[in-house]
Amino acid sequence: MTAIGFLSFIDHPPQGILGGFLIVSPLGRPLEFHCSAPIQPNRAQEILYGPTLRPYLLGDLVGRTLVEHTELPVEVILVDSQEALELRMSVDVPVAAVFSDPAAVFSDPATIDLRQTSETLHANPFKVPDRMPNQVKIGPFLLVMARGYLEDARLLRNTLVPIIRDVDLCEPFERIREALMEAQRMSA
């Protein structure tokens, strides 16, 4: 059975960042869920990692830990921020950031290179998928992949196109965020 992993995070100052990893069936039913305790980078990490700190925290530290703890294998992992794409270096399945609105890609803080390279694309976001090699449009969603993994676009299509009518690729992130807030509320 195709299982899809959804990874999301919430910032909960002053405790830090919490992550949640939800695996769902093609019908959107939850199969497995893991969430992390909040983490807060120390001063040394902030200095050493600089602008790459957040991708490191989301993708490598929290994301990888959560994925490694799951029992069910997943075909793809979807995240709701490009800052978490660094996870791809730690797993052997495609990782992609999902956007329901193409214009939202440009408001994502991690879209620096896109902003710099394509003013014309910004003017017409509907054309983005055709021109950017690390992006793929599946149904109404725009998926941004980690660079350097040429096979990922094909794998994502193979996995998601057959089920795109059954799963809203953005909705599970809402569930994760609510679950994380509940977990935080219960532990407070």
């Binding site: 939850p30 909705e171 569930r175 509940e182």
Partner: peptide
């Protein structure tokens, strides 16, 4: 509690 919160929305359950 998470079991409830992680369920898909009612619309999705009905659609599924």
């Amino acid at each position: 509690r998470l079991h409830y919160l992680l369920q898909p929305p009612i619309e999705s359950l009905l659609a599924a």
